[in-house]
Design a binder for these strands. Structure first.
Lengths: 224, 224
DNA sequence: ATACAAAATTAGACTTGTCTAATAAACTAA
DNA sequence: TTAGTTTATTAGACAAGTCTAATTTTGTAT
């Protein structure tokens, strides 16, 4: 009879914690069952079940009005998973020469590999990187997360310049589009014009490229 | 509705394939439900169910008299997992400085991470190692496995010397014992005496250590 | 050949995580 | 506030993988 140790997390539980954490970054959003269901791509009914389970384990709190919230232990575990994810992304890009748009899915699997010290050893091996290849800060061992000032490209005014610091969307289609536009972390972008009709933006990307992008695109890129 | 693609393998299916592969290395053994049950640490009833499943997927053949046998596809997948496992072990030892006895359990998790090219990229990054830290050959991309002549230490005669080429048991207790005895891949061992009563062996390990080991120990070490 | 032991198999149940359909509660707009 | 629409929740079912407790089959020793 395998003893269900109170600190054992199933893959699924870890993914729910991660999803809740991600939603919590968007302060405006209430972490409702439906929000979690959207994030996870499952039905609301499934979410309710998992909310019960995670609440019993004291990883989250839940209240119909306030929604879900990570408790200390849940928060710590979610951050640890994010840390793993971002460290593995650095590894895949820098050591295995994977490209920007391929690393997310693999890191999604690697992040759940568990062993005390693994994250720390990987961190040391990679030279204690501060940011992952998408520009997101890598949480420290103690759970601290370096914060950076980030603005949506869509909020930059005509005539102003900025530098790409991170991407908000990590889907392959988006990242491949960025490759095509020669956009990378650090790339300089100047907003030449904004189309009032649909808020499309005319951009100068680096020195070479001048192109128009959609509002949706401009809302997926973080700059400063 | 997630389409159960015929080529999708659950973690469990992969572990059964691996177990069957491992038993198959011992040519003498019939791959019976009980043998698999022992290897996997589950009940025979569970094995029967999985045998049905893997047979339907044409990964193995099964016949009450002949036992189970990996079919081509099953064999290929099992070898691929072993390849992953051994490559990750090299990574953990050489790049993350884990010790001999810690790497197995972590590799057990890493071996299931799936992405086309991952094994090949890791292989290249590690410089195409031929053997894992336990002395086992790392299968090539095409499935070929370098073979080496290996003899059990227990079969070496009094007065003869040999070199450790691999370990048959990868449990931490055994590996830690080896560390304590300063035994590593490549270590020279001379059999000084064999106790007829229980087949214990008196060994000269390297230049420094002289000690007696049990028959069980001598059957867990491969030399040549 | 008979009888006992070991191995294979079946039946039925349990757990985890999922779903759909039905119901209850909360919210919103005229 | 009252109807209509979203959300939350419950109920019941299902798939995967596991178990225990029969039951059947096979093997073996005398």
């Amino acid at each position: 009879m395998p003893i269900p140790h109170e600190t054992m997390r199933s893959l699924t539980e870890e993914n729910y914690l991660k999803a809740i954490y991600r939603i919590s970054l968007n302060k405006k959003l209430k972490i409702s069952p439906t929000a979690i269901a959207d994030e996870m791509g499952v039905s609301a009914a499934s979410v309710i079940d998992m909310i019960k389970k995670l609440s019993e384990k004291k990883l989250i709190s839940y209240d119909k009005v306030k929604g879900a919230k990570l408790l200390e232990r849940g928060q710590k575990e979610a951050v640890a998973i994010i840390r793993n994810h971002r460290l593995w992304e650095v590894f895949l890009l820098e050591k295995l020469n994977y490209s920007w748009d391929e690393i997310h899915d693999i890191a999604e699997q690697l992040e759940h590999v568990k062993h005390p010290e693994l994250a720390d050893r990987l961190d040391a091996f990679l030279g204690h990187p501060e940011y992952d290849p998408h520009g997101d800060p890598i949480p420290k061992s103690n759970g601290d997360i370096p914060t950076t000032v980030k603005t949506l490209l869509s909020e930059i005014e005509i005539g102003k310049s900025c530098r790409v610091v991170a991407v908000k969307d990590t889907s392959s289609v988006f990242l491949q589009y960025l490759v095509q536009l020669s956009v990378n972390i650090g790339t300089k972008i100047k907003v030449l014009d904004i189309v009032p009709f649909d808020n499309s933006m005319l951009l100068q990307i680096g020195k070479e490229i001048k192109t128009t992008v959609s509002k949706r695109f401009a809302e997926s890129l973080l700059v400063d």
